[in-house]
Design a protein around this nucleic acid. Structure first.
Length: 875
DNA sequence: GCGTTCACGC
DNA sequence: GACGTACGTGAACGCA
C-alpha cells in the first residue's frame, strides 16, 4: 500500500528555529532550523518509511486569502533573518536527499498539502501530515492522520478522527468553525472578540457548526455574548472561510512525483560536513572516518629501556588511563614528545625504569599534559610520583571556554588549531565496545595526542594571556588540580557496618510503608513508577491533578505536599520517597563504591565541567550527601576519620555569595549588614519591608531568604513564585522591592547585562569567563535566561574562585607548618578535613583564618568551623 | 542504551 | 505564539 507523507516545511522550520539554540557553523551561517528540520526528516524516514514524501513551502507574501481579507497575516512579525537565510539550505538538503518539494504562487503550504492529501486519499493511499499548525487538523480522516509538533521538534502528537474526538469532542471538519469563532491572532484572523477556545468549544458542542450557532443566537446565554455574536456575524463567517484549506489548488506536481528515490550519500555527507552536523554525520559516514586525512608521523616505540634522551624538558606527556574511573585503573601506555623526538613507551617499560620515575617526579622537568589529575592519581596508585606539570590543555581549554562541550584532546585540537586527530572514542570504541586496540594503533594514537599537546600548549597559552587568564590558570587551577588529585587518592573513610545497619532499618520501614500504601490504594503497584502512581492518585483515588508532565501527571514532592491533607496515602508516599532515596542512593549507592580493604571512598572531582567554575563530584557524588532533614543527615555518621583518635573538621564560608554580591555591587545596605555581622536574611526583610529588626516576622524573613536565594542562583520570578508558592506577579513584586532597597545591586544587574551584550561574555573576580551568545536572542526566554546567567555567574563564579584559592592557600599553610591534617572534600562553600588530635586546636584556628584572608574584599569573608568524630558531628 | 521523572546538595 | 526557567549527579522506570 502506498503511503504519502506531507511535511509543512515552513512550519517545521519555524518550530525548529525557536526550539533550538542559535547554532552556526564556522562560516557564521545559522544552522539550527536546518538541523532541527533534518532530525525531523530522518525520524520520519525511519519511522514512517513512506513510499511517497513531499515537503510543501509557502510562496511569497500574498495569497488568494488576501482577496477575501486584505489584512490577512498582517501585523505578523517578520521572519527573523537568522531563519530566512536557512530556507535555501533546507532546499539544498532536500535535493541531496532527492526528496520532492514544491511551492505554489498565491497558495500556502497548507493548500498544497490539502490538495495532495485529497488526491492520495481518492487513490486509497494512507496519508500522514507533519506540521506545527493546528489548522491542518481539518484534514484528518480515516485515511489521513496529522502529526503536530508538541515540544521540541521530533516530539509529535498524532491525530486520528478518534484522537480529535477525544481532544476536541468533534469531527475534524469543525476545526474551521472553531477558528471562525476564536480567530487566530498570529494570522490576524479576527473571529469573534471575547471568544476563546473554551467558549468556542462549548458553542460548537451545543450547536454543531458556526452557521447553526449564528442562527441560534437567541438561545445563547449571556447578554454580552449575544451582542458580540450578533455584531460579528459576518466577521465570523469570513474568519471561517479564511481557515478553510483549499483541496483543489492548481499544482504542478502530482502525487506520483513524490515517489521516493534512493538518495545520494556523498551529497548528504558533503552538506552535513559544511553545516557541521557532526552527530548526524555518523549515521551516513560509517566507513570514511578513519585516519586517512591524518598527517604522517614518525616515532620510536620503546619496549625495553627508556633512555635519557627521551626524557627531556619540556615534554608533552600522555599517560593513557582509558577507563572512566581512574582510581586503581589500568594504564595502557605512555607517550612522550619533545625536541628530541616522539616516543611511545609501554607501561611496563616505563614503570620498570628508574630513569623514567626520577624524571616524572622531578619538578624541574617540565611536562605538558591533558588531564593531569587523571594521570597523577592513576600513577599515584602505582606508587609513582608526578611533578613539574606546567601546562594542562584540559584546564586551559575549559578556562578559555567552559561551554565547549568536550575538552578531549581531539576536540581541543580541532577547535584551536584545526588539527585533525582521532578521538579516543573512535580509536578505543565507546560503551560496551571499548577495548584496547592493537599495539600499532594504540602507540600511534598516543603519540598523535602527545604531538597535539606539544602544539596546543602554545596556542592555548597565548589565548589565556589574551584573556588575562594566565594567572588564573597557572596560580590557581593548575595547582588545584594536583590538590584535588591528592584529596581523591586520600579518600574518606566510611563505616560500612554503620551504613549496613541503617540499610536494614530502612528496608524494614520501606516494607511497612509499601504495604500501607498498597492497602490505601486498594491495589498493588510499583510505587517507584510515576507512570503507575499517577493514575492511581488522580483517577482511582480522585485527587486533583495540579500539574502535568509531558508524559502524564506530575507526582513530584511539591505537588504531593499540596495534597497532603486530602488523603492519608500522600504523607506515606512522601515518606516512602524520602526513605527509598536514602536507601538506594545513599546506603546502597555508597556501599557499592566503598573500597573493600581500606573502607574508603574515592570520589572524582570534575574540574572542567560547570559553566560557573564550581567543581562537581562523581562516583560517588560527595557534594550532595543529605543534611537538611535529620533522617538523611544521619548518613553523615558513616563518614569518619581514617585513623583512631583523628577527627573530622568542617569549615564553611558564611553567606559567601551574598558577600561577593555586596562587594561587586558596592551596595551600602548590604555592606553594612556584613560589617555588622547581622543576620543577612533578617536585614533583607528589614530593608524590603521597611520594618525595624524587632518587627520582622518569620514569614518576612522566609520571603527575604527566598529572594536572597534567588539572587544567588539567578532564578526567575517564576522560580521564586514556585519556591514561595505565591503567584508570579507577587514574586516579581518582591524582586522589584528588593532592587529598590538595594539600588547599587540594581545598577550592577543593569551594567552586567550591558557588559554581556557588549563583550559577549561576563567574568568573575579572577577572570573566569562565561560566554552568553543568547543575550541578544530575539527569543524572550532565551534572552531572559542569558540575562539571569549574566547576573548570577560573576557571583557564583567569584565564590568558586575564592574557595578554590582558599584550598591552595590552606594546602600551602599545611605544608609550611608541616601538619599531618588532610583535606578530604570540597562542597562548594565548605572544606572537610581529617585532623589528628594534637592538631585540632591549631586547625580550628588556622583553616577559617586562611579561608577568610584568601581574598580581600570590601566585606569581610567569614568561615565557621566545627569538628567531631564523624562528618555528622562536625556541625 | 536512552530519555524521563524524581530527589539530594549548594 | 513560540517556551521554560540556578547548577550539578544519580537511581529507577520504561521504551527501544
Amino acid at each position: 500500500m502506498n503511503k504519502l507523507v506531507l511535511i509543512d516545511g515552513n512550519s517545521i522550520a519555524y518550530r525548529a528555529f525557536f526550539a533550538l539554540p542559535l547554532l552556526n557553523n564556522k562560516k557564521g551561517v545559522y544552522t539550527n532550523a536546518v538541523y532541527g528540520f533534518t532530525t525531523m526528516l530522518l525520524k520520519v524516514l525511519e519511522e514512517e518509511n513512506p513510499s511517497h514524501l513531499l515537503v510543501a513551502f509557502d510562496a511569497g507574501k500574498t495569497t488568494f486569502r488576501h482577496e477575501t481579507f486584505k489584512e490577512y497575516k498582517s501585523g505578523r512579525q517578520k521572519t527573523p533573518g537568522e531563519l530566512s537565510e536557512q530556507l535555501p539550505l533546507m532546499r539544498e538538503l532536500l535535493e541531496a536527499f532527492d526528496i520532492a518539494y514544491t511551492e505554489v504562487k498565491n497558495y500556502e503550504a497548507d493548500d498544497i498539502i490539502g490538495t495532495l492529501a485529497s488526491k492520495a486519499e481518492k487513490e486509497g493511499w494512507d496519508v500522514k501530515i507533519y506540521s506545527g499548525d493546528k489548522d491542518l487538523l481539518q484534514l484528518v480522516s480515516e485515511k489521513t492522520s496529522v502529526a503536530l509538533t508538541k515540544k521540541g521538534i521530533t516530539n509529535v502528537e498524532t491525530y486520528t478522527p478518534e484522537a480529535m474526538q477525544e481532544r476536541y469532542g468533534f469531527e475534524p471538519a469543525r476545526i474551521v468553525d472553531m477558528k471562525g469563532l476564536m480567530g487566530d491572532s498570529s494570522d490576524n484572523i479576527p473571529g469573534v472578540p471575547g471568544v476563546g477556545e473554551k467558549t468556542a468549544l462549548k458553542l460548537l458542542h451545543e450547536f454543531g457548526t458556526i452557521e447553526k450557532v449564528l442562527d441560534s443566537i437567541d438561545q445563547i446565554s449571556g447578554k454580552k455574548m449575544k451582542e458580540r455574536l450578533e455584531e460579528n456575524k459576518e466577521q465570523a463567517m469570513m474568519s471561517k472561510q479564511l481557515a478553510v484549506i483549499e483541496t483543489n489548488a492548481p499544482l504542478t506536481v502530482t502525487i506520483e512525483d513524490a515517489a521516493r528515490k534512493g538518495y545520494n550519500t556523498d551529497k548528504i555527507i558533503a552538506l552535513f560536513k559544511e553545516l557541521e552536523f557532526e552527530s548526524l554525520l555518523n549515521k551516513f559516514d560509517t566507513e570514511e572516518e578513519a585516519s586517512q586525512e591524518l598527517e604522517e608521523i614518525h616515532f620510536t616505540t620503546v619496549e625495553k629501556e627508556v633512555t635519557q634522551e627521551m626524557l627531556a624538558s619540556p615534554s608533552a606527556l600522555i599517560v593513557e588511563v582509558p577507563s572512566e574511573n581512574y582510581h586503581e585503573a589500568d594504564i595502557w601506555g605512555i607517550s612522550i614528545v619533545n625536541e628530541s623526538g616522539a616516543y611511545y613507551i609501554s607501561t611496563e617499560a616505563a614503570l620498570a625504569s628508574d630513569a623514567f620515575k626520577v624524571w616524572a617526579a622531578d619538578p624541574k622537568q617540565e611536562k605538558y599534559m591533558a588531564d593531569t589529575k587523571r594521570a597523577v592519581v592513576a600513577l599515584g596508585w602505582k606508587g609513582i610520583e608526578l611533578a613539574g606539570v606546567t601546562h594542562d590543555i584540559l584546564i586551559a581549554s575549559y578556562l578559555i571556554d567552559p561551554s565547549a562541550g568536550s575538552h578531549q584532546v581531539a576536540d581541543i585540537a580541532e577547535r584551536n588549531a584545526q588539527k585533525k586527530i582521532d578521538s579516543d572514542d573512535a580509536v578505543f570504541g565507546k560503551g560496551a565496545k571499548r577495548g584496547r586496540p592493537d599495539e600499532d594503533k594504540l602507540s600511534e594514537h598516543l603519540v598523535r595526542k602527545g604531538l597535539a599537546i606539544f602544539e596546543l600548549k602554545n596556542v592555548l597559552e597565548k589565548k589565556l594571556k589574551e584573556n588575562e587568564q594566565f594567572e588564573l590558570f597557572k596560580d590557581l587551577e593548575l595547582p588545584l588540580s594536583l590538590i584535588l588529585g591528592k584529596m581523591e587518592k586520600t579518600g574518606i573513610t566510611v563505616d560500612t557496618d554503620q551504613l549496613k545497619a541503617m540499610g536494614e532499618e530502612l528496608t524494614g520501614r520501606l516494607q511497612t510503608l509499601e504495604k500501607e500504601i498498597h492497602e490505601l490504594a486498594g491495589t498493588e503497584f510499583n510505587i517507584n513508577s510515576p507512570k503507575q502512581l499517577g493514575p492511581i492518585l488522580f483517577e482511582k483515588l480522585g485527587l486533583p491533578p495540579l500539574k502535568k508532565t509531558k508524559t502524564g501527571y506530575s507526582t513530584s514532592a511539591d505537588v504531593l505536599e499540596k495534597l497532603a491533607d486530602q488523603h492519608e496515602i500522600i504523607p506515606k508516599l512522601l515518606l516512602y520517597r524520602q526513605v527509598s532515596k536514602l536507601q538506594s542512593t545513599y546506603v546502597e549507592g555508597l556501599l557499592k563504591v566503598v573500597h573493600e580493604d581500606t573502607h574508603k571512598i574515592h570520589t572524582m572531582f570534575n574540574q572542567a565541567l560547570t559553566q560557573t567554575g564550581r567543581l562537581s563530584s562523581t562516583e560517588p557524588n560527595l557534594q550532595n550527601i543529605p543534611i537538611r532533614l535529620e533522617e538523611g543527615r544521619k548518613i553523615r555518621k558513616a563518614f569518619t576519620s581514617s585513623d583512631k583518635g583523628w577527627s573530622i573538621l568542617a569549615a564553611d564560608y558564611s553567606q559567601i555569595e551574598l558577600r561577593v554580591l555586596a562587594h561587586i555591587a558596592g551596595d551600602e545596605g548590604l555592606l553594612e549588614a556584613f560589617r555588622n555581622e547581622m543576620d543577612v536574611h533578617t536585614k533583607t526583610a528589614m530593608d524590603v519591608f521597611h520594618v525595624k529588626e524587632e518587627d520582622v516576622t518569620g514569614n518576612m524573613r522566609r520571603s527575604a531568604k527566598a529572594v536572597n536565594f534567588g539572587i544567588v542562583y539567578g532564578i526567575s520570578d517564576y522560580g521564586l513564585s514556585q519556591s514561595l508558592s505565591i503567584p508570579r506577579k507577587e514574586a516579581q513584586e518582591f524582586i522589584d522591592r528588593y532592587l529598590a532597597s538595594y539600588p547599587k545591586v540594581r545598577d550592577y544587574m543593569d551594567s552586567i547585562k550591558e557588559q554581556a551584550r557588549e563583550y559577549g561574555y561576563v567574568t568573575t573576580l579572577l577572570n573566569r569567563r562565561r560566554y552568553l551568545p543568547e543575550i541578544t536572542s530575539s527569543n524572550f526566554n532565551r534572552r531572559s535566561f542569558a540575562e539571569r546567567t549574566a547576573m548570577n555567574t560573576p557571583i557564583q563564579g567569584t565564590a568558586a574562585d575564592i574557595i578554590k584559592k582558599a584550598m591552595v592557600d590552606v594546602t600551602h599553610a599545611l605544608e609550611e607548618k608541616q601538619l599531618e591534617s588532610r583535606m578530604l572534600l570540597q562542597v562548594h562553600d565548605e572544606l572537610i578535613f581529617e585532623v589528628p588530635e594534637h592538631e585540632l586546636k591549631e586547625m580550628e584556628a588556622l583553616v577559617p583564618d586562611v579561608m577568610a584572608r584568601t581574598m580581600k574584599l570590601d566585606v569581610p569573608l567569614k568561615a565557621d568551623v566545627s569538628y567531631g568524630d564523624t562528618w555528622y558531628d562536625a556541625k
